[in-house]
Amino acid sequence: MKIEGRALCLGLDIDTDVIIAGRYLRTKDRSEWARHAFEDLDPSLAQRLEGTVIIAGKNFGCGSSREQAAIALKEAGVRGVIAPSFARIFFRNAINIGLPVIECECTCSDNEAVSADPGTGAVTIGTHTYHTRPLSPRMLEILSAGGLVAYWRGRR
């Protein structure tokens, strides 16, 4: 599988409260989560997420276990997240809902073209290609199916 999009560069320790604030967790409406993604970081960001690949610093998705954070990004059209490290619950949630995540330390500028393959670990940003550890075959299968629910249904 391959993910492609334009780079959106974010900082270190992006927590799940910043991805989707607690005040929006009452609803079960996914589009509501997408509309308010990153609101406390930059209220205009949510409208610019469609077609992006987030390139972030270490410990992306730290904090709360709220799966709504990963869903908000996917629903807003984020194609994937690339960071040197992820908080473990977010990483697992992302795979479970079918949002590609790749562990890779890279530098970027906003809007550079990004192309990445979680299966090979190759990440190209602009003209530079990085090689990182690919996801495990099981994780790739879950991602390709679109998440754990679809993966599990397909295996029944």
């Binding site: 709360s64 709220r66 799966e67 619950i89 697992r92 949630n93 479970n96 809902i97």
Partner: peptide, 23 residues
């Protein structure tokens, strides 16, 4: 527990961890 602070029950000698909603 579907909450990140589930790790608190380690105080009772359990292995306890927070998980997302799909898990």
């Amino acid at each position: 527990g579907a909450d990140s602070h589930t790790c608190m029950y380690g105080a009772a000698g359990a292995f306890s961890t927070g998980i997302g909603s799909t898990d």
